[in-house]
């Protein structure tokens, strides 16, 4: 095993509607694992407009050398055209650069990588040494073990594969740094944020997912009722999203979100490979489907062959 000759890491802190995204704690979980192989110095980078609150929270991540904060107008919408060249420059001082494998990380990291002439490793689900990483391919039908000798390793981390670190009371030193100049290749027009009281899909302990079998948007209320009883989040298959039963950002699967809750309820969905790719690491899987041959039963710990319109109200009543 060759260690990176620069044992320092830069973590790009992600922000979401709540401010400090929980993905950051999972990325730190991955870094804890890497620390078993490399004696790492870790810096965090918070970039955005008016991000003092996020920075304050990020500073409470344990084991940090320095928290860099770039706060200003040019980075308000974190456009990749503006961030990438600046990040490529910052990143050149580090041996590792980490982001979450979220839409934010997926948009930005490859752009930075190309500017640095580096092939990143995305969707990392296991760290096998300081230079060996595992990522799923073919919708999780295979796990590729990869090795890289590149002096700077750019990695995106799958939240479902690592455990979150806990925030501490202590606080890392904060260093303000200059924001990049806006590139003005694109303009922000708007963001339609999904407002929800429910836990985020990727952080939820319980997920209740529905498929085409729900038949209509109104019927998704049954899933919400069950989720509310269990303090869970609601997910959906692609067919359910395409049919307009649920919002796009609830899609679980190869091309949607990858989740690993304590309990995953799969209701009225068949269990296509592409769906299973997004939930196979759940601890306990419950399937309710009226077709005994539905493939979802092959991955379910508990299966109930029933009409969901009978079973769901009964289940809700019994909890």
């Amino acid at each position: 095993m060759t260690l990176s000759n620069n044992p320092s890491a830069l973590v790009l802190v992600e922000q979401d509607a709540s401010g400090f995204s929980l993905i950051n704690l999972k990325v730190m979980g991955a870094i804890e694992r890497l620390r078993e192989f490399v004696d790492l110095q870790v810096d965090l980078l918070v970039v955005g407009k008016d991000c003092a609150a996020v920075a304050e929270k990020a500073a409470r991540i344990p084991g940090i050398r320095n928290l860099l904060v770039a706060d200003g107008d040019s980075v308000e919408h974190q456009l990749p055209e503006t961030l990438a060249p600046w990040l490529a420059n910052l990143a050149s001082d580090y041996g590792y650069v980490f982001v979450g494998a979220t839409t934010f990380g997926k948009d930005l990291l490859p752009r930075v990588a190309a500017l640095m002439d580096i092939q990143p490793i995305t969707d990392v689900i296991a760290i096998d040494s300081g230079c060996e990483f595992t990522r799923p391919v073919y919708a999780g039908s295979a796990l590729a073990r990869l090795r890289t000798e590149q002096p700077i390793k750019l990695l995106s981390i799958r939240a479902s594969a690592f455990s979150a670190v806990e925030l501490a009371e202590s606080s890392a030193p904060i260093t303000p740094i200059a924001v990049p100049q806006a590139q003005n290749m694109s303009r922000f027009i708007g963001l339609q944020q999904v407002q929800t009281e429910r836990p985020d899909l990727t952080a939820a302990r319980v997920i209740v997912s529905g498929g085409r079998g729900l038949q209509a948007r109104e019927n998704f209320q049954l899933l919400y009722q069950l989720a509310d009883k269990l303090g869970g989040a609601v997910g959906a298959s692609r067919a359910a999203v395409d049919s307009g039963f649920a919002a796009n950002n609830l899609q679980v699967g190869q091309t949607g979100k990858v989740v690993a809750p304590e309990v995953y309820f799969a209701i009225g969905l068949s269990g296509a490979v592409q769906h299973i790719a997004g939930m196979r690491d759940s601890r306990v899987v419950v399937a309710i489907n009226k077709d005994p041959d539905a493939p979802i039963f092959q991955v379910a710990d508990y299966g109930l062959v029933a009409d969901l319109f009978d079973a769901l109200p009964e289940l809700i009543a019994q909890l």
Partner: peptide, 22 residues
């Protein structure tokens, strides 16, 4: 830039039980 050391099969989930009622 990357060397593929190998492709593994993911751990299969054990098929569980079919329950008879809610």
């Amino acid at each position: 830039r990357l060397q593929t050391l190998g492709l593994d099969s993911p751990k299969l989930r054990q098929q569980g039980v079919i329950v008879k009622s809610v």
